[in-house]
Design a protein around this nucleic acid. Structure first.
Lengths: 283, 283
DNA sequence: GACTGCCAGTTGTATGGACAAGTTCGGACG
DNA sequence: CGTCCGAACTTGTCCATACAACTGGCAGTC
């Protein structure tokens, strides 16, 4: 496109540069021009080495120069790969010092953080759900605010007891935005993932804001979860949005705190990785 | 504002290249060569515009070319700034289309997520702390594992009741790594931030892993927090590390769940923003 | 009118060069 | 022996360029 004359450069000699050599000899299993960009291939390879224990926490990564040689790419590409690892906290480092390995980060994909079914399945257990109630009721203040509708407007409410391998894990009380509620009413709620079904019907969940605190179980909670009343439960109130920012659902989940926890990994460089965690121990 | 020669125009005149022009006339309030890198100044400016409502969610950002002209920097620098905004979910976009504004993200700085004092101060309240106990005790299994020391090794333990404006908010039970514990013993623990003090002595907290669940208050908890026994509390177990991955502390905090909550903002594109939240309501 | 194909604009990827700023380490010097 | 200084190395920042891949709109065609 726009071609300025070479500015500072003197040498029009252009010797057989390293770039030339690179084109002929793709080093170390990288595929050039393939579907995966080079910087992704490199960051994946390094991430793999960390997960596989070939690189231990505290180890020093080779310098950028070293990685350039090893992978046969330019410094910019190496830095792009390292930036990705820095972004999710796999490595850390500062100016003048090679990057240090921090350790593997087990991030939970967004879909698993949103969908109980996907999460439980990924743990190798069988997710089930019992519909306690599904009805249209006028929105209370909290619901109306969350879904940005007027107070008292009819809203589809769903209460489900969610289990893993038939053992109760949490209670889910969800209010759907009108457009979504219409669709939910047509879905078999028994045990399949609502989000999966909605996705096939064009409802895309893109982001969510979750509020975590603790409450004591009510008598209904206690009965459903098979615990004494006033047992401490982990409460997660979730507001989920479409890609355009339209509110799609407002949900209050109550987890058995002795079975479930959340982890947050964060670093000074600002990346946070959140996971929902199950415990094998049980109660 | 910045007047470069029309680029498509024929002008092979060359000499006053854009680079040359840039050096003489820094456009739009950017300070070159200052302490803040250009890409940071740009991302901060754009972030500000989003927060201030000058750019609304759904708006399209100017193209990279447009931003280059507007800020008078090269494309690489613009892309570095945009990558930062993409990283925390402020903007999104894909190939071939200008970035779209997603909305402001109120991230809590890492220091505020770690330090009770810094957090409470940022809320405009006065943080205080009452030392309940400070002693060296042999490490139990959980502590030894978290700090990577052998079971039974002597460890400095600290129990504090933390208050905001003299109202109890949480109980903090911390075990320090040996090297850190020695230093903590020399600090006045009454009300200043331990982290600030340790920072001045060369102990840098760089990352943390936090585990969130809920427990019922013990009788000691209840007495200190002025609540009935078996009140549900939000429990956060925190393992904090130095930049080199060395464990520095292991802490179990118990928050009054009706005063404190955590929020998690996350998006399908994987960025998570975690905040600790205070509520004005109170109990 | 609907479809196709092309083209300009835009972002993603990759390279290369230059300088600034920080770390590390060893040797000279007191 | 300890301290200071500087050279070598390493990362951070910034620039310019080139090409590939994708989007959106316009013109031409059926």
């Amino acid at each position: 496109m726009d071609k300025f004359g070479r500015i500072g450069a003197i040498s029009a000699v252009s010797p057989p540069t390293s770039a030339e050599a690179r084109r002929h000899r793709p080093p170390l299993g990288l595929t050039r021009g393939g579907p995966l960009p080079l910087h992704l291939q490199i960051s994946e390879e390094l991430r793999r080495q960390v997960s596989a224990g070939e690189l231990h926490p505290g180890d020093l990564l080779p310098s950028e120069g070293g990685l350039m040689e090893r992978f046969g790419v330019s410094r910019g590409t190496i830095r792009q790969a390292l930036a990705a690892l820095r972004g999710d906290g796999t490595i850390a480092g500062s100016r003048g010092r090679p990057p240090v390995v921090r350790g593997p980060r087990l991030a939970q994909p967004f879909s698993e953080l949103l969908s109980f079914s996907a999460w439980i399945s990924s743990l190798g257990m069988r997710p089930t759900g019992v519909v306690i109630e599904f009805a249209r009721r006028p929105a209370d203040r909290e619901t109306a605010e969350a879904l940005v509708i007027r107070l008292g407007a009819p809203v589809h409410h769903l209460v489900r007891l969610r289990c893993a391998d038939d053992e109760p894990l949490m209670i889910e009380r969800t209010a759907f935005a009108p457009r979504v509620g219409e669709l939910v009413a047509t879905i078999d709620l028994a045990n399949q993932s609502i989000y999966e079904q909605l996705g096939r019907r064009g409802i895309v969940f893109d982001s969510a804001r979750q509020l975590i605190d603790a409450v004591a179980s009510t008598s209904q909670d206690a009965k459903l979860l098979h615990v004494p009343a006033r047992t401490p439960l982990l409460r997660v109130r979730r507001n989920a949005f479409s890609p355009t920012g339209e509110p799609l659902e407002w949900s209050e989940d109550r987890y058995l705190a002795d079975r479930i926890a959340f982890t947050i990994d964060n670093t000074a460089s600002d990346a946070s990785v959140v996971r929902r965690l199950g415990r094998e121990g049980g109660r």
